[in-house]
Every structure is written in C-alpha cells, then in structure tokens.
C-alpha cells in the first residue's frame, strides 16, 4: 500500500551562486550593511498537492509530458526525495529499477558484476552466488561472461544488466520507462521476464511515454501536468484523453 496525502515538493534550483558559501556569507554580511539581501536559492515547485492511494495488487501507470513531475513522483515513492509538506506512507519495500546498471564495474568480469549488482540491490554474497548460474544462463552471454564487461558491446552490457536486475521479483516495483534489452532473440525473453516481474510484484508503478506499455501493464493511470495530477482513472480513459489532448 502506498498512501500520499497533500504532498508538495519544492527543490532548490541549482545556479552558480546557490552552491557557494562565499556568496552566502557575502550576502548575509552585505545584507546587514546594505539592509537588503537578494535570495540566492530559487526553488521549483515540482509536485503540487498530490493525493494518491495505491492499494496492494495495483498496477499504476504515470504519463505526462517531459518535466511534468513523473520521475520526481517516482523518487518520492522510492523514498529518495523527502516531501516538503504532506506525507507519504509506504507499506512494503520499494525496489526502484530506475538505474539498472548501478554498481556494475567495467573492469570486472561478468560473473563478478552479477555479484556486485546484486549486492547493490541489497542481497547477501551467499544469495548472489547462488543466483549466478541462473543469471548467466538467462543472459545467454556464454563464454563472454568471463571477460571484463568493458569489452562487451552496449547491447551485451544491457542484456547482462537486465538479466541481473530482473532476477528477483521485488515487493513494490518502481520503473522509470519500460526496461528491455538486446537483439531480436533476446527481446522476447526479456519481454516474458518483465511480464513475470510485473505479475509477481505486489505493487507496480510504471512511468512511461509508451502508451502501449501503459495500457498493457497498468489497470490505472495517472496523468501528470506541471507537477499536479490532472487525471487519475482507469488506463483506457486516461490514455485516450491524453492522446486526444496532444493531437488537438
């Protein structure tokens, strides 16, 4: 269960001076002397009054234009961004697959990278070692698995990352864009794996520009616009109005 109540998020916009202690000191001293100081840090109101209840078993899609606040909302759900006001309660452990190559080291071989990546995902060395054979098998990289992954092509690299990241089904799955990898033969396998993953997770939140994927995986969809929720209904209704708003 995920419950978000009148949540707002403002975050500092980084400029040349917002990061400087020198400017801050000058500003406060100058403020005393000149009687007026200018604001160094400006804030973006990234999420506005978000109310959302996601019950167990839900498959929720998030759509919207670039900069509408989709990724920000995902990060709030993952617990990365603290809300400026309002509250979020999550029941369960969130696994974000927003960065599915995190922890991989180009200089180490494939086997080692499987272990590294799983440790980064929060598993123990013993669990990781047990999973190695299955992952190697699924990735279909064969002998290449013993080479440093800097020698891999981009496709092979992503294939390995995908195989590792989707090996264990998470409790609450947060996805920023549908992930997939590889050539024609692998794409089918990856598709099945992703279907399985989405099927196994208790809650799935998927943000995507791919309306087809949203309609396929999600029963309910949120349309975000300028940091607020524009519409929150079943996927068909929301994606239809979204598409018609674009073509208009």
């Amino acid at each position: 269960m995920i419950k978000i109540e009148s949540l707002n998020l403002r975050y500092p916009l980084m400029g040349h001076f917002s990061h400087s202690l020198q400017s801050h000191l000058l500003n406060s001293v100058g403020g005393v002397l000149a009687g007026k100081s200018k604001e160094l840090v400006s804030y973006v109101h990234a999420l506005r009054d978000i109310n959302l209840f996601v019950s167990d078993g839900s498959r929720v899609g998030i759509i919207g234009h670039n900069g509408a606040g989709k990724t920000t909302l995902l990060r709030v759900i993952s617990g990365v961004y603290p809300p400026s006001s309002g509250a979020i309660t999550t029941n369960g452990t969130v696994h974000a697959l927003t960065d599915f190559t995190l922890g991989m080291d180009p200089n180490a071989d494939g086997i080692k990278n499987i272990i590294f990546r799983l440790i980064f995902m929060g598993y123990k060395f013993a669990d990781a070692k047990k999973a190695v054979d299955d992952i190697v098998d699924f990735s279909g990289l064969g002998e290449f698995i013993n080479l440093p992954i800097r020698t891999y092509s981009t496709g092979m690299y992503l294939r390995l990352a995908f195989s590792i990241s989707t090996h264990f089904a998470p409790d609450i799955l947060v996805l920023d864009e549908v992930i997939g990898a590889g050539d024609e033969s692998f794409r089918d396998k990856a598709q099945k794996r992703l279907d399985h993953l989405i099927d196994q997770s208790r809650i799935v939140v998927l943000s995507s520009h791919d309306i087809g994927a949203i309609n396929k995986y999600c029963t309910r969809t949120i349309w975000m616009e300028k940091g607020s929720i524009m519409m929150d209904e079943d996927s068909k209704t929301v994606t239809d109005s979204y598409l018609s708003s674009i073509s208009r």
């Binding site: 990060r75 993952s78 617990g79 990365v80 696994h95 974000a96 927003t98 960065d99 995190l102 980064f120 929060g122």
Partner: peptide, 8 residues
C-alpha cells in the same frame, strides 16, 4: 550520486 538517486 547515482547510488542516492536510485534508492533511499
């Protein structure tokens, strides 16, 4: 940074 953006 990457570590912090993905998980809390």
């Amino acid at each position: 940074a990457r570590l912090f953006y993905n998980d809390p």
